[in-house]
Structures are given as C-alpha cells and as structure tokens.
Amino acid sequence: MSDPILQLNDVKTHFPITQGFIFKRKLGTVKAVDGVSLTLGRGEVLGLVGESGCGKSTLARTIMRLVPTTAGSVVLEGKNLTATSAQSARELGRQMQMVFQDPYASLNPRMTVYATLAEPLLVHGLCPPAAVPSRVAELMEVVGLAPRFMQKYPHEFSGGQRQRIAIARALALEPKVIIADEPVSALDVSIQAQILNLLAQLGRKMNLSLIFIAHDLSVVKHISDRIAVMYLGKIVELGPATDVIERPQHPYTRALVSAIPTPNPDVERSRQRIVLPGDPPSPVNPPKGCNFHPRCPYAQEKCKLTEPPLVAADATRTVACIRLGEI
C-alpha cells in the first residue's frame, strides 16, 4: 500500500506465566499476538475480527503501547514507536487514540464530562486554558452531545451517550488513528446504529484512519474497507471487507461467516452451516503446524507439520492456509 499511516511488522506480544512471588519460576508463555504484520492506509477503516482470546484486543493494546511488545515493530508515519523512548513515544502516541468497549468502565465516574474532555487538552498543552471551555463544547457538538451537559457526570448519561463522550475524548487530541476496541458490543441495536454512523461520519470528515475491532462480522463488514481475521494470535485472512465476508477462503473465516445468524428466516433456514467442533485451543499451548487444524474440516497430515504463511491468494487478498488451492 502506498504511504501507509501505520505499519506493523511481525509484531509479537507474549506474556510469561510465572509461579511464586519472590522466586518466580516461568511456567510457559501466552502467545497472545504471535507475528502480525499489517498496514493501515490513510483514511482507511480496517476491521479486525476474531473470537474471544484470539488476541485482537492485545494487538490493539500493543499498538497503543499499553502492553510491551516482545518482538517486531510498530511504525507510525515512518517513526518506529517500539524503538523510541517512552517520552517520545507518548508524544507520537498522541496521534493514536483508543475507544474502549465498555463506556461504563472507561470513563472516570468522579469526573464531569468537562473534566474528562479538558484533561487531555491541558496535559498536552493543545489549547490555551482560556480556550478550553469552547474547545470542549466544540468536541461535544462533534459527537452529537449538547454542550449544556458539560457539567454532568457519566452516570447521568445512557450507554450510547457515554460512548459518545469516550469518542469525544479520543478526538480531543486530534489524532490521526483511532483504535476502537468493540465500541458497540455493549450497546443495544438501535444505539449501536447511532455509534456506527457517528464513527463512519467522523472518519470521512476528519480523514481519520480507524482500526475497528469487533466480534460481530456484520457490523465490521458494514463499516470497514478491509477486514483482517485473527485466530490464536495470528492473522489468517486479510482482504477487502465485502470479499472476505461474501467469499471467505480460509476454512476458519468460512466457518465464522456461516456461524453468524442472519435476520432473514428463509435464508437462515435453507443455508448450510459449518459447525466447528470444540473450542479455540489455549494460546499457552497452541497446536503444532497450523493453529486451526484440530477444528478444521479440511485438515490433513501436512497441516499438522508446517505453519502456513500468509500468502497472496489474489491481488487483494492474503490467506494463511496451505491447502488453499485444493479446497
């Protein structure tokens, strides 16, 4: 991709499992993110999907430097975030902001909306103190909240309104990249639609690049330009959103797409569903070879031996499956 804003090169985030308090013994490693390479274009919306425990949230936190990277690099506008000092990374990190899943937990209950939105402005010295109130009012208007609610506390708002506050907080620093980690999962469908519209509209208006993480494929398909599917710390398929959902190629993506119930009784009752056996395996002890082989309907002996690389399946799509041409 020409001129990506964000680039991940073989990023790994491993967590040690230790036992004991003083004499720590290392028992193993959770390979939460295990070799992810991605690019995010300017103004692009990249959807990241996968089931719980696949490492999608850890990847988001790794990009934000909320957890230390084990290997690989995160490059934002040509500058390697993983190699710089904490301070300059913070300076660079201003250009990336995060919106979290649960707006009930991500806002400080003792801070008014004004305090929440003014804090980043003052910390980073982005506007003179006298101009803060007008900037806060402006931010609230951008996300569709009336500025007269400035002195209210988070508990006085509904879930959807709280998520708007969280989005306004992310926008306060005028970031170039926003990482939204399941921003609509905790919301009802009618409210979910409002937040999706808002994110899409902000992305267009401010030319934001967005990484949108969700487990709901239909939501991701709706908002994203490209979709990356993760399984057990690795990306298994990456391609244009509509393509990936309508013509999935990796066996896992196929199963995932077929598992989503569609709100259309005739379609729902006539289609063939691939029901995967078992649960996702533990990332402490991932299967040898292809991570997915124990649950894969197409697995053969060779799948247990070699780890499949992510290779180009066509001009726009990459897939990590060695049997791709055969199935």
Partner: peptide, 17 residues
C-alpha cells in the same frame, strides 16, 4: 429495529437510527 441492523442494509450506507 430491522432497519438499524447493519447486515440487512447496503454496506457503508447510513444506518437508520
């Protein structure tokens, strides 16, 4: 309710709220 579900709407269109 039906109109606000993304999977029933054309991709990228404004969702009904």
């Amino acid at each position: 309710l039906q109109r606000s579900i993304p999977s029933l709407q054309p991709k990228g269109s404004e969702l009904y709220t």
